[in-house]
C-alpha cells in the first residue's frame, strides 16, 4: 500500500461495493417518499408500515419456512456427502463429488427453468415445498464445502480410539464425532439459511402463487410509494445476514481450534 494510486483504487473499490448498502438504512429512516437527497427528517413510519403489511408477513413466513427447511435438509445431505468424501475411497469418487458440487457454478436461471419443466411435467403443484427442493439443490454444495473442512480436520484415530475403548459405531459418532463437528454443522446450517433467504430466481420460478421475501420485494419495486418500506425491509435483511454470517464464521473457527487443525479458508 505504498503507492497512493493503489490506495485510491482500494478506497474506490470499497465505496463502490458498500455505498449502495449504506443508502438502505439512510433512506429507511428518511421522512419522505422520494429516494433523493437532501434528507427530510427522521421517521420510523416505514418500519411500522412494514410490520402492518399482511402480504409481507406471509412472504416472511414462507421465506423462514423455506430457509429453515433448506438449512436442515442441505446440512443433512452435506453431512452424508462430506463424511463419505473425507473418510472413504470408492470407485468414481472424483466424478461423483464433482457432480455434487456442480450446482455451485450452474446458472441459476437454467436450474430454475429446468426444475420448473420437470416439476410441471411430473405434475407436482408449485408451492413452498418446490422452492425448498430447488434451494436444497443449490445450497448443498456450500454445506458440503463447509462440512468437508470439519470432517477432514477430524483425526480418524479419534473415532478408532473410541471404538477401541468399547463404544459402538453410533455411540462413537454421538460422543466423539458429533461434538467435534458440531461447530461445522451449525455454521453450515446458517450459511444454507442465508443462501435460501435471499435467493430470488429459483423462488420466482418455483413458488407458484406463494410470495417469498425476495419475490415480494421485486413485485413491490414497481410502486414508488412502497420503496421506503422496501428500504426498511432491506435494512433488516442486511443486518440479519451480517449477524448470521458472523455467527457461522465464529462456529467454524471454534471448531477448527477445538480439533487442533489448521484454518484452510472460510467466508470471513
Amino acid at each position: 500500500m505504498k503507492l497512493p494510486s493503489l490506495r485510491i483504487y482500494a478506497l474506490a473499490y470499497l465505496l463502490f461495493l458498500y455505498a449502495p448498502i449504506l443508502l438502505l438504512p439512510i433512506f429507511a429512516f428518511n421522512d419522505g417518499t422520494i429516494i433523493a437527497f437532501p434528507l427530510k427528517g427522521f421517521t420510523l413510519e416505514w418500519f411500522g408500515q412494514m410490520f402492518a403489511n399482511d402480504t409481507l408477513r406471509r412472504a416472511v413466513g414462507n421465506s423462514l419456512i423455506i430457509a429453515g427447511s433448506t438449512a436442515v435438509f442441505a446440512t443433512v445431505l452435506g453431512i452424508f456427502a462430506a463424511r463419505a468424501g473425507s473418510r472413504f475411497r470408492f470407485p468414481g469418487k472424483g466424478p461423483i463429488m464433482g457432480l455434487i458440487m456442480l450446482p455451485l457454478v450452474l446458472p441459476e436461471i437454467m436450474v430454475g427453468g429446468s426444475l420448473l419443466l420437470v416439476l410441471l411435467s411430473v405434475g407436482i403443484e408449485l408451492s413452498v415445498f418446490t422452492v425448498i427442493l430447488g434451494h436444497v439443490l443449490i445450497a448443498t454444495p456450500y454445506t458440503i464445502a463447509i462440512l468437508n473442512t470439519a470432517f477432514s480436520s477430524l483425526d480418524v484415530s479419534l473415532e478408532e480410539a473410541a471404538y477401541d475403548l468399547g463404544e459402538g459405531k453410533w455411540s462413537t459418532f454421538r460422543l466423539i464425532t458429533l461434538p467435534l463437528v458440531l461447530p461445522g454443522i451449525i455454521s453450515s446450517m446458517l450459511i444454507a439459511f442465508t443462501i435460501s433467504l435471499d435467493e430470488f430466481i429459483i423462488a420466482f420460478f418455483l413458488a407458484g402463487n406463494e410470495p417469498t421475501l425476495p419475490t415480494y420485494i421485486f413485485s413491490q419495486l414497481r410502486f414508488p410509494k412502497q420503496i421506503p418500506m422496501i428500504m426498511a425491509l432491506g435494512t433488516c435483511l442486511v443486518a440479519l445476514s451480517i449477524i448470521l454470517l458472523t455467527i457461522a464464521e465464529y462456529f467454524r473457527r471454534r471448531g477448527i481450534a477445538k480439533t487442533g487443525g489448521k484454518d484452510t479458508g472460510g467466508f470471513l
Binding site: 483425526d155 484415530s157 479419534l158 478408532e160 480410539a161 473410541a162 471404538y163 477401541d164 475403548l165 468399547g166 463404544e167 459402538g168 466423539i176 461434538p179 467435534l180 477445538k258 480439533t259 487442533g260
Partner: peptide
C-alpha cells in the same frame, strides 16, 4: 469387532479426545 477384543491401542497421534478433560479421556473406556 475391535470394540469387543481384549486389546487396547495407543495411537501414533495419541488420539486424545480434544473436547474432554484429561480425567474424562482416561475414564472413557
Amino acid at each position: 469387532p475391535a470394540n469387543k477384543r481384549p486389546t487396547n491401542m495407543v495411537f501414533q497421534s495419541y488420539a486424545i479426545f480434544p473436547h474432554l478433560t484429561v480425567a474424562q479421556n482416561v475414564g472413557f473406556g
